[in-house]
């Protein structure tokens, strides 16, 4: 590993390890939190994953748009469980169509 790449590699190590920390922390919290928190935690874990992909240059247009959509609707989705379910279902269909095309 050349010294020139070290800051970048450190950054990759940091954000990838931090992301797994987030997922583990979500899992740990769910032992005590209401089970209804589960879908929301997974949605925000997906959001963080997309941010990670973006920083690593691995993000396609669909995922970039999904990130914007999650951000725009975040506060509302926190408060309305039924809307959260519909949102996740709708985006799942979009994602599966994209996967089919690739």
């Amino acid at each position: 590993m050349s010294d020139n790449n070290k800051p970048y590699n450190n950054r990759i190590n940091k954000i990838t390890t931090g992301y797994i920390g987030y997922v583990f922390s979500s899992a740990l919290g769910l032992f005590e939190e209401p089970k209804e928190y589960g879908p929301m935690r997974l949605l925000f874990a997906a959001e963080k994953a997309i941010e990670l992909f973006e920083e690593l240059g691995l993000c396609n247009e669909l995922l970039k748009q999904l990130l914007v959509t999650i951000n725009e609707n975040k506060e509302f989705l926190l408060l309305d469980y039924k809307s959260l379910e519909k949102f996740i279902e709708k985006e799942s269909i979009r994602l599966s169509r994209r996967v089919k095309e690739i």
Binding site: G18, Y19, G21, Y22, S25, S26, G29, R41, F44, K74, L78
Partner: peptide
């Protein structure tokens, strides 16, 4: 960033 990674409640 580090704190947020270990705090699922920070959205």
């Amino acid at each position: 960033e580090d704190i947020s990674n270990f705090s699922p409640g920070i959205i």
